[in-house]
Design a protein around this nucleic acid. Structure first.
Lengths: 230, 230
DNA sequence: TGTACATCAGTGAACGCGCGTTCACTGATGTAC
DNA sequence: TGTACATCAGTGAACGCGCGTTCACTGATGTAC
């Protein structure tokens, strides 16, 4: 049961994070400013130490939140599609992924861009959070493989030596080797487009970045051997 | 003719930039510190104003340098391959591109990662520099197309509507539409792998990132319709 | 070849600013009997 | 139901630090005649 105090406490923590996110959106991820947060809340800087032991802790929580929100967005998108439409599910997940990134540019930068100067993310925390994103994509591919909707094309059937290292880690996701390879290769591909867009480097020849992304994803799925419904 | 004074001046500017790059390598792109540069040079902070009017100007020059060095690396790699081996040239260019990025992680981050807080790159300067990189790749593709080594596969022959915007900009590079499309799509793909590697997010299943990159590039070239020599 | 002047590199003090964090504290809110 | 005590949110002063930039200046190096 949640006490009144706990509710107020959680609300205060949320307010702090909301302001921190606004700061990032305006000035970049490195612009998270303790004293300025306090100012905006109408409170002394010391009061914030009731909620976060240090600025580092606040940033860590923002990172974990971002990873989770990103995974939630992909998952929600994926779950709105009929279970047997594997290609549709994957497309939805990947579009949900991109949409979240575009809607929360600085949160995405916080995760995948430059580390904040002087800040070092605790390894285990962020790795755990990052795994969830990969796990969602890989789960769809695995289901598609078992249902026969994913028939990996020749090039994907035998992962290159470079990726054989995976044997050591395979249990991490508990899926077939092909699926893991397709997952990693595919993820790298969509990551490139999103990073270019988020950081404003998409070549000016691309007009509609959302449509470009969708086109590339569909092309990729076809090329990898995932059957599309008509 | 270069006077003694000009030589000394250029040497001093180089020293400043070298120290700034070391700072980035150690603490990230945002860690460029005017006073600390002066300290390391054994000089007062004010002395540096003889060479750069402001910290912003210094950063801008670092960005331009990085873009040029990156393009130089790709070009040099490409030029060491026989002119008629188009696939070999492209592979060399792309591997040179990645290698430079890996060897100069923070310079690459400076270009393609988070903007430095409070710093705003002058648009025209950086755009001009970025264009060179794209131009090099696209030139190889165009030559390959004309020589018949590049026979775009079906999926690439007709760029999607999303990219038709290019008509407005096509003259920028003066190449065929297919080439431009292949160039942009391909660039996004390699960009994803490099960004993941540079920022330390390559999934741990990938053992040898260089081999993985090479494998993906070769696969991509085959898939796009660029004939490989045996 | 020597002199007069202009150009340039670098100094040193100071400005104004803001940061994250510590410490000892006050006063309000909750809890146990 | 009221009282005694513990818990918690928040204050206010201060610490130690470092930043980029300005200003008026000195002394060395180059240039023109």
């Amino acid at each position: 049961m949640v006490t009144r105090r706990e509710r107020l406490r959680d609300a205060a923590k949320e307010e702090i994070k909301t302001i921190a996110r606004a700061q990032m959106a305006e000035q970049g991820t490195a612009a998270i400013n303790w004293r300025e947060i306090a100012r905006q809340m109408g409170v002394t800087p010391t009061a914030l130490y009731r909620y976060y032991a240090t600025r580092e802790d606040l940033i860590t929580e923002l990172i974990v939140d971002a990873f989770n929100a990103l995974a939630d967005a992909a998952l929600a998108a994926e779950q709105s599609v009929s279970r047997e439409d594997y290609a549709g599910r994957l497309l939805a997940a990947l579009e949900g992924y991109r949409q979240w990134a575009v809607d929360h540019k600085t949160d995405f930068q916080l995760i995948y861009g430059n580390p904040i100067p002087g800040y070092h993310a605790p390894f285990d925390v962020t790795v755990q959070a990052a795994r969830r994103n990969m796990a969602i994509l890989v789960a769809i591919l695995q289901a598609a493989l078992q249902a026969g909707a994913l028939k990996p094309t020749a090039a994907y059937q035998h992962p290159p030596d470079a990726i054989l290292e995976q044997f050591r880690h395979q249990h991490d996701y508990g899926v077939d080797q092909v699926v893991l390879y397709i997952g990693v290769a595919g993820w790298a591909r969509i990551h490139g487009m999103i990073m270019l867009e988020i950081f404003g480097h998409t070549p000016p020849v691309v007009g509609d970045t959302a449509a470009f992304y969708r086109h590339e994803v569909l092309h990729m799925m076809r090329e990898m051997g995932l059957t599309l419904r008509q």
